[in-house]
């Protein structure tokens, strides 16, 4: 994980990669908007839109924020709060969703 630091990537390839990632992000933005506009059932559309958003976020995190070159410790620093948040949100379901929804 920590091997192959960014400095070892040739500079030209590096810039090209960044532009490709940007192009992908723009394409995914258009895909997301298309899902929004096209007559797709709402639940499916929402799921697809957030799947697209997750892919976009992963692209930025891995390439622009260099997460794919980072030490395990950095992954832990990012992953643990995310996990806690998921747990926190699940715990709140009975109180927020059921109370008002019921």
């Amino acid at each position: 994980m920590s091997h192959g630091t960014l400095e070892s990537v040739p500079a030209d390839n590096e810039s090209r990669l960044y532009v490709i990632v940007w192009a992908l992000l723009v394409v995914l933005l258009i895909v997301g908007l298309a899902i929004f506009i096209l007559p797709i059932p709402r639940e499916a559309a929402v799921a697809l839109i957030f799947a697209v958003a997750a892919v976009k976020a992963t692209l930025v995190l891995r390439n622009y924020m260099h997460l794919k070159h980072e030490h395990l410790l950095i992954y832990i620093i990012v992953a643990v709060p995310a996990l806690f948040l998921v747990g926190f949100a699940i715990t709140l379901i009975p109180d927020i969703v059921f109370r008002h929804g019921g």
Binding site: L73, I74, I77, P81, L92, V97, H100
Partner: peptide
């Protein structure tokens, strides 16, 4: 410095994540 900045971002993840999480939960009942 990298640990420091990721540390800061982790705290930001918790702030924004909590807001978004609560928003999603509210969206089921509102």
């Amino acid at each position: 410095g990298k640990i420091a900045i990721w540390w800061f971002l982790a705290s930001e993840i918790m702030v924004f994540g909590a807001l978004m999480g609560v928003f999603v939960l509210f969206s089921f009942s509102h």
